[in-house]
Computed example of a mutant assay.
Amino acid sequence: MAQVTFKNEPVTLLGEEVTVGSIAPDFTVLANDLSTRTLNDYEGKKKLISAVPSLDTGVCSQQTRKFNEEAANEQDGVVLTISNDLPFAQKRWCAAEGLDNVVTLSDHRDLSFGENFGVVMEELRLLARSVFVLDKDNKVVYAEVVSEGTNHPDYDKALAAFRELN
């Protein structure tokens, strides 16, 4: 299991760690209109899943913007940003940032994504900063759980893994 800190304090990650080579587990989250979404809703597409503690912070905002600017136009691909922010707050953040095509999903209700991917910080009930790249069959080809929650992920490695998929 990954060792993670948040603001230099150790946190406990809940759930099963998702590793490269495994098939990604399904999850249920909420879209901005409160409808449910699952991994199966993005069937047949390569996926870059960017998990952040809260969109309303500097690093999370930059991470969301970077992945969407760099990867959202990939053919047969989708970028999903998942946080525990309420769907209303996610929608408001997208509007304030002027981002129309960002797919933000909320894990606040069930922690389904966080627990299934092993990235719930128990002490904070937030998602650990992490990035997962899945092929069209949901095989995990890249996984990073950032060791310090206030640091950036390795954008170059994640984007390279996403772009290499056909």
Score class of each variant (00 low, 15 high):
residue 110 D to Y: 08
residue 145 V to S: 02
residue 121 M to Y: 01
residue 159 L to E: 06
residue 29 V to D: 03
residue 116 N to C: 04
residue 108 H to D: 05
residue 149 G to Q: 13
residue 90 Q to T: 14
residue 144 E to S: 10
residue 152 H to P: 02
residue 60 C to N: 07
residue 42 Y to R: 03
residue 136 K to F: 01
residue 63 Q to A: 01
residue 120 V to F: 08
residue 57 T to E: 10
residue 53 P to H: 06
residue 7 K to Y: 14
residue 48 L to T: 14
residue 4 V to H: 07
residue 23 I to R: 05
residue 112 S to P: 14
residue 75 Q to D: 14
residue 118 G to F: 03
residue 11 V to G: 10
residue 71 A to Q: 09
residue 33 D to Q: 07
residue 159 L to M: 12
residue 18 V to C: 15
residue 44 G to C: 04
residue 99 L to G: 03
residue 34 L to I: 13
residue 53 P to W: 04
residue 104 T to C: 02
residue 110 D to P: 02
residue 61 S to M: 06
residue 142 Y to T: 07
residue 83 S to L: 03
residue 77 G to N: 08
residue 102 V to M: 10
residue 15 G to S: 11
residue 23 I to S: 06
residue 76 D to K: 13
residue 143 A to L: 06
residue 32 N to H: 05
residue 34 L to F: 15
residue 37 R to D: 00
residue 59 V to L: 08
residue 72 A to D: 11
residue 23 I to N: 03
residue 23 I to D: 01
residue 9 E to Y: 15
residue 95 A to N: 08
residue 20 V to S: 11
residue 55 L to S: 00
residue 166 N to A: 14
residue 25 P to C: 02
residue 62 Q to K: 11
residue 163 R to G: 08
residue 121 M to Q: 02
residue 162 F to S: 02
residue 31 A to D: 15
residue 163 R to H: 08
residue 51 A to Y: 04
residue 117 F to S: 04
residue 120 V to C: 07
residue 144 E to H: 09
residue 40 N to V: 06
residue 141 V to Q: 03
residue 110 D to S: 13
residue 27 F to L: 08
residue 23 I to F: 03
residue 145 V to T: 08
residue 93 W to P: 01
residue 86 L to N: 10
